[in-house]
Design a protein around this nucleic acid. Sequence first.
DNA 1: CGATTTTACGAAAACGTTTTCGATTATGTG
DNA 2: CACATAATCGAAAACGTTTTCGTAAAATCG
Lengths: 347, 347
Amino acid sequence: MKPVTLKQIAETLDISITTVSKALKDYPDVSKKTKKLVKELAETLNYKPNVFAVNLRTKESKTIGLIIPEVVHHFFSNVIKGIIAQAEKKGYLVIILQSNESYELEKKQIDLLFSKRVDGILISLANGTGDFKHLNDLMAQDTPLVMFDKIAKIVNCSKVIINDRKAAYTATKHLIDSGCKRIAHFRGPLLPQNSIDRFLGYKQALTDNGFAYDPSLVYICDCSDQSFDEGKNSAKQLLEDHDDVDGIFINTDLVAIGALTEFQKQGISVPEDIAIVGFSNWFMSSVISPTLSTIDQPGFKMGKTAFKLLYKEIKSRKENLPIKFKTVELETKLIERESTRRFHQKV
Amino acid sequence: MKPVTLKQIAETLDISITTVSKALKDYPDVSKKTKKLVKELAETLNYKPNVFAVNLRTKESKTIGLIIPEVVHHFFSNVIKGIIAQAEKKGYLVIILQSNESYELEKKQIDLLFSKRVDGILISLANGTGDFKHLNDLMAQDTPLVMFDKIAKIVNCSKVIINDRKAAYTATKHLIDSGCKRIAHFRGPLLPQNSIDRFLGYKQALTDNGFAYDPSLVYICDCSDQSFDEGKNSAKQLLEDHDDVDGIFINTDLVAIGALTEFQKQGISVPEDIAIVGFSNWFMSSVISPTLSTIDQPGFKMGKTAFKLLYKEIKSRKENLPIKFKTVELETKLIERESTRRFHQKV
DNA sequence: CGATTTTACGAAAACGTTTTCGATTATGTG
DNA sequence: CACATAATCGAAAACGTTTTCGTAAAATCG
């Protein structure tokens, strides 16, 4: 009933534990004969090394931690999938924790993962996180850390991101190229760098192309569970406030779809009256009517590369090589769909 | 730089390791005085017990494994969230693996988790899984296992499910009560028990209410990534095959929304021409137009209770209590929305 | 055949806890 | 004061592995 150990194999074969261990790991100083004997017995006894002992000896667990603001999220769940897939390839397991966008929770979870002695941590920051002591402490204690998507530029570690600003610029430029003359923006919450960057990209696209930036055209959506409703509400508000807006760049597909729904309800036609570009390329955006132009945000790939960076760092540390932090910026691309398909007047 | 150990505390305080360990765990046979001393020093040194050693000693890792067919899935991601939330409450961490609906992968992952010596495993079966040796082996080797949602009735372990058959019956009955005279069914793949049960519930609702069961009204959707498109295609096919269908019970909300989209495109109005009931209560179904009637499937709660059952089993095993397997059936409820709001003619 | 190198093996320490059980000291009782 | 009891403590084993280093036997060589 009890799990087989090296000791048992050693005793039944009447050799030492050392030799058994070495045989199983193909050390050169054990004969082919005994290797074969040991391996066969191990096989028939279904021997599995006790990871607890291995961890203790080797000081590593082949496990990494992942802290994510929200699991139920189309983008993040794709990231998770990418991370798990890549980790599995390298023999790593991943423990997932959810910060619920709370700084306090995030701090606790970092602590928890550290005390669990994971080999490294992958994190996408909570919106509330403005202090980074917990992250710097972690790294000071020799735990590799890489941040993705929602990052802190100040923290010195590897990162994988998209260029939110550039992507937003492209999205807004696309509205301009589509002939929009007055372009609004539904932005995300004030805190995370991403919504700031997207906002800045929007703004710069405007000014670069001779448009005046008008703060009254920027609406804030607190992208929570109610994203969809916030889209609807902001759309409603926009219609009350302005009658000349003919294009909107929206922080997120779900909010955009909310807005779209509201417009359709009020008889505003998209894209003829108002063109819309979303963000994320959520699968639903290719599915609704009109299909939604958007920025493709490669979640799965982000997960994969985030793990790859972490893996490199773990390896470097083991081999005592110098570790150099890297920031990789993943390509986004504009997906043109019906919601911006108007009379094109490219400049 | 190196982590603090009991030994270091013991040496600086000039007492034994034993006493330090006991002091930290509030054993009765150590004086308040030394307890205070030890605890204070541990605090200032930021002592964290080495989990690897603890695991080895106690033979448990306070970690459970979770195998799920697909992470990027509205229902499953809610289950994941529920599991993580409940596990965290009890001090457990969860390792997530994805089977991609593959039996082979599932088997490997069970093996992997077993060799990682997780304290227990939560699983929702892959569609392809028809053989259960890997699960029975696992349990024979003393690893607690509980299955949820996609289960195997044959395997003797705790389970948490919904009554798919009953829910489907309710959904279909609702169509009948809404005045539908000829009701189709878009079912899921042939294998998993869930789609079989939903199909059976549909069938029984028909026959119980004096409707003839017509196999030609049952369409199969292989609920993969392309669920939405399958919904569209099945809808298209249905319109070609039959012109008298006025109600459909659909295996999944996403497929239902696909069908809905196709109907709208072809000028079939929902619910007037065809009423639709979906399954899952995906948030999108309350958001599209017309809003979709559906069966609410409590993913988050399912995750929580699945962990609770597993936790109980882990505890029982530790205390050598007899373990009794339990199957808990979670309530589903019909959500009536616009897609079935016709001339009600309740019997 | 003696010297040297290879080959094959094992003893033992170490990783950091937890827990049993025995020993020592302090306290209480008559 | 002698003795029993209670209060504190620590030695040591155990969990199962990995790895260093030493040694004995076998093979090689001149």
